[in-house]
Simulated scan of single mutants.
Amino acid sequence: MTSAPIRLGRGFYWQELTVGDRYSTYGRTITSADISTFVGLAGMIEVLFTNVEYRKTESTLKGEPSPGALVLSVAEALALNATAQETGLAFLGLSTLDIKGPVQAGDTIDVEMEVLSVRQESNGDRGLVRTRNTVRNQEGKTVMVYEPLRLMMGRPQ
C-alpha cells in the first residue's frame, strides 16, 4: 500500500509559529497592466493614476505610480502564498499600515514577515497570529509596513 504524497506549499499551523520567527517571500514585479486593471476595477479614477500628461506637467510624483491599496494586495498575496496556504482562515484586520514610499510600474516588491504574537483562539483548535510585514522594492528600500492579524488553523488532531 502506497502512502499519500506530502503536499508541498502548505502554510503553517498556528502552533508552528513562534514570536520572533522571520520569513521572506519571492518578489513580484508591479506592471502597468496591474496598475490599470486595479485602478479600473476599484474605480480609482484619480488623475494621478489615469492621466499621463498630468503626471508629466503637474504632479510631483513622476513615472507610473501604483496605488497603495494595490501594493498591499500584492504584498498580501505574496505573504499568504508563503505562509498561510490552506491554513489561513480569515484576515481579521490591520493594527497599522504605513506607506513609506512610492511603488512604480516596473518595481519589484517582496515581503519580510516577523511574527509578533501567537495565541490560541477561544475555540481551541485555531490561533490568532499577528505579523509585521515589511514590503521592500528591488533596491531594498522599505515602501510599506503593516501588521495584519490572521485566524489560522491548528494542527489536525
Rank of each mutant, 00 (worst) to 15 (best):
G11Y: 02
T131Y: 14
L151R: 12
Q120L: 07
L78N: 06
N123V: 15
K141H: 11
D125W: 01
M152T: 08
G9I: 11
N133S: 12
I6T: 14
L72W: 06
V71Y: 02
D125T: 11
I35A: 04
F38R: 06
M152D: 02
E114C: 04
E64Y: 05
S36I: 15
D34V: 06
G106V: 05
L72M: 11
A105Y: 06
L41M: 12
S95R: 14
M153P: 00
F38T: 08
A79F: 07
V71I: 15
T50A: 09
L70A: 04
E76Q: 15
L78K: 02
R55I: 13
K100Q: 11
R130P: 01
D34H: 07
T29F: 01
G20I: 08
A33K: 01
D98A: 09
R126G: 01
A82G: 01
L89I: 15
E16Q: 15
A75P: 00
M153S: 13
I30C: 08
G124A: 10
T57D: 09
F38L: 09
L78E: 11
T50V: 14
L128K: 11
E16C: 07
I30Q: 02
E112R: 05
T57K: 12
Y54P: 00
I109D: 03
P5L: 13
F49A: 05
V145E: 14
Q85I: 03
M152N: 06
F91V: 06
S24Y: 00
A77F: 09
S32M: 02
A79S: 14
P156Q: 14
K62V: 10
I35C: 01
A82I: 03
Y23R: 12
A82Q: 13
T96D: 13
T2W: 05
V135L: 12
V39F: 07
V115A: 04
A33S: 08
R55A: 06
S66A: 15
T31V: 03
Q104P: 00
L48H: 03
A90R: 07
G40A: 13
G140P: 08
P67F: 12
R150H: 11
L72A: 11
E147M: 07
Y146R: 03
T57V: 10
D98I: 08
A4N: 05
G68N: 05
A79V: 06
L89N: 03
L61M: 10
I35N: 00
A42M: 15
G124W: 11
M44I: 14
D34Y: 01
M1V: 14
V111S: 03
T60P: 01
P65A: 04
L48W: 00
E114S: 00
T131S: 15
T29G: 00
D34A: 05
V103A: 07
D107A: 02
G63R: 05
G140E: 12
K141E: 12
G124P: 09
F12P: 00
R132G: 02
R7F: 06
V115W: 01
G11I: 01
T50P: 05
V71Q: 06
L149S: 09
N51H: 11
R130A: 12
V145Y: 08
Q157K: 14
E112Y: 00
T96Q: 12
W14H: 13
T131F: 15
K56W: 09
T131I: 10
F12Q: 09
R119T: 10
F38M: 02
R150W: 13
L70G: 02
L89P: 01
